[in-house]
Nucleic acid binder design. Structure first.
Lengths: 251, 251
DNA sequence: TGACTTTTGTTCATATATCGCACAAACAGA
DNA sequence: TCTGTTTGTGCGATATATGAACAAAAGTCA
């Protein structure tokens, strides 16, 4: 790509929008300039542009995003066939097993939920399409990382912030790589309260007609429902059946 | 705002992202240029920028959005206090009444779901945070429009595409305005299968501490569960109780 | 309180980057 | 092959970013 094929004003503007994610709902011009690294004058112009277009509100001191900004992300969810195709399967699966079921894809070091059928809340955080979790310690993340090449997986791990969420969280790169091998061999991943105490999950890859792993499917269950070792016997068959049904539908 | 405080390259780029919403997941340069009204060269530069930043994929012919784009919308959901505050109330309400409960805000002629606790699916479409419905024929939309001034409400109706979804959909502007008066007086709105046959709902406004309507809260129920006229006696009290509990928490 | 420092928002001139046009090349379908 | 369409590129005109300067506001301390 040539240098002149890059619209840096656009790139700067997107950076400004993302700056709201990591921080407060209300940000001053200086706040944005600091967290994006842009010049104050530039940040101000981007913010005023957002405000002029109705994507942000400005009270003379602070800027905040408006719900119009949701159109941007929704463009992906509504345009991507994956979301629409998997939803009915997810609903059916979730109801059949009485647990929440989700589909996610990999984005860098994180998994992004693209569809979900939730039962009664078991996690402290509320997951929804667009939500993100670190890949290394989520069952779907493990499955998606296991589908990468050794080098790619190691690179993702290297770039991840390997935080210890619970005393069971695996954070040793080599231990994680070994776990990926095991997952690749057995075809599924189990997480036993590594992200949150009391929460277990099991995930399988979603493979398309050409044999490529395009997403992951999981079932989350409270640890109180039985030890994590029993997740495969309880949920692996229905998960694999859904994965099989979806295979010819996923381009 | 001065003209030089507007970054038109940024505005054009946002237009490009939104173009994916109304159309196909895969768009060529010419497709985007046509649906945005931008020059082909400009559309191309915006698309290449998106691609360079990882927000889009390019196979040499078609562009498609990547899950990274979800970061933009998610910035709003995760940064807005409303979402976080109402979720636990929504979960509790939904479980207590055994129906889906949602909170939405108004964006132009549409309502935007910002939080939702769903029970077994009754609608054909899958609603989630970020989803949009036309305001004029949704219970939360009616409540939010009823909270506007006569002139504002009439303007929204005027700008809406008043489509007949079912044979019960109200599309007469004057009939809608009359309905808004009734809603304003009684404090809630009931929709009886106007959007989809078999689906009824009841909504109340969420008022903040300063008396301003900031969002709407609803319960959706299958028509098979009882006639729409009985929705108030079944659900109005719990809805109003949640609205009351939330009042001091909503800025 | 009042003088001082720091932070913030805004403006301006100028250097730089982007836009949109026109043209050329590549491609697809008849 | 010939259309009609799509994509890529060079260039002049135009729009935008930059960084410094200034004013206003907020914070600091005696």
């Amino acid at each position: 790509m040539r240098e002149t094929d890059f619209v840096s004003g656009f790139a700067r503007g997107l950076k400004v929008i993302e700056a709201f994610e990591e921080a407060q709902p209300k940000m001053s011009i200086a706040d944005i300039a600091r967290s994006t690294g842009l010049d104050r004058a530039t940040a101000r112009r981007c913010l005023l542009t957002l405000s002029e277009l109705g994507y942000a509100d400005y009270d003379g001191k602070f800027f905040s995003l408006t719900p119009k900004i949701l159109r941007l992300g929704h463009a992906y969810l509504s345009a991507t066939p994956l979301t629409r195709i998997v939803q009915p399967f997810l609903d059916q699966l979730s109801e059949a097993v009485g647990q929440s079921a989700s589909v996610s894809v990999l984005d860098g070091t994180e998994i992004v939920y693209v569809a979900r059928a939730s039962q009664k809340r078991v996690m402290s955080i509320n997951l929804m399409p667009g939500s993100r979790l670190p890949a290394y310690c989520a069952s779907m993340g493990r499955v998606l990382l296991a589908a990468l090449s050794e080098a790619e997986a190691r690179d993702v791990i290297h770039r991840s912030t390997l935080k210890t969420f619970t005393d069971r969280t695996l954070t040793e790169p080599d231990a994680l790589m070994a776990e990926f091998s095991r997952i690749r061999a057995q075809g599924y991943a189990v997480i036993d309260q590594e992200l949150e105490l009391g929460l277990c999950s099991i995930a399988v890859p979603l493979v398309n007609g050409r044999g490529r792993v395009v997403a992951a499917l999981n079932i989350g269950a409270p640890a109180a429902g039985g030890p994590a070792e029993t997740l495969p016997e309880r949920y692996l068959a229905p998960l694999q059946q859904v994965a099989l049904s979806l295979k010819p539908l996923l381009g």
